[in-house]
Design a protein around this nucleic acid. Structure first.
Lengths: 121, 121
DNA sequence: GCTATAGTACTAGTTGGCTAGTACAATATA
DNA sequence: TATATTGTACTAGCCAACTAGTACTATAGC
């Protein structure tokens, strides 16, 4: 189970906040494989947003093979990728690093700068 | 000097592409301190965009203390921050790393994962 | 001072992302 | 099979980001 919360400020869209919280829940173990998520309607009511907003979040996570949905039944944490497919996982990490490294380099920072900074934490 | 180029595809706004290219030019040494940039008009004609688009890029870089503009004279690479103000530089690096860490952690990656990935390059 | 050249300001149109309203379709279960 | 429950599809409105058009202001240099 997991407690959802939305922050209207900060500019992060609602559907993305939902996505992040589910991802984080899975990553930290609060959400387990096979567990059922709240229905789009109940979560929508709970968070006081439209059910399409919740639906959009679920849908995106389903595309990423993280959730599995069955009309009439509900939405569940998928057995599939996040823990299993280490190939895709590696690629994702590589993507994230590439993105941020290119930003950093446009500011004149090197990979070493970043590593040093991260290690300090 | 530097050769500007815009990519209409990819979704990166024109003004941001201009910013990135100037930053990159400074970081790599193609643009030197005190050097004059193309005028907003000439660069606008060159890139086939509105002069306001170029102006927006220059203005943003001026706010960041990277460029210095003088109405009637032109726009120049500033002597100031990018090389000198190491305080702001440090903060920028910290920001970038925070961003990187938070995105990565939402995917379940740790700081060590990131460091490993970056070192491989 | 006059004029060319440089940046600035104001306005407006377009577009895409986000959210909501509402109707539809599929499944479970009694 | 009837009905409740679940996800889906389609449409529309809002808003911010982006770009452009056009007029204005400041400086250089003759």
């Amino acid at each position: 189970m997991i407690e959802f919360k939305l922050d209207p400020k900060g500019g992060v869209p609602f559907y993305r906040q939902i996505i992040d919280q589910i991802r984080y829940g899975i990553a930290t173990g609060s959400l387990k494989v096979g567990e059922q998520l709240p229905t789009v309607r109940s979560l929508a009511v709970d968070l006081k947003v439209n059910l399409n907003t919740v639906s959009k979040a679920y849908k995106e996570l389903e595309i990423q093979n993280i959730l599995e949905t069955q009309q009439g039944t509900g939405t569940f944490i998928g057995v599939s990728k996040i823990q299993i497919n280490s190939g895709e996982r590696k690629k994702k990490l590589a993507d994230i690093c590439s993105e941020l490294l290119s930003i950093a380099s446009s500011y004149g920072f090197t990979a070493d700068d970043i590593i040093k900074e991260i290690k300090q934490r």
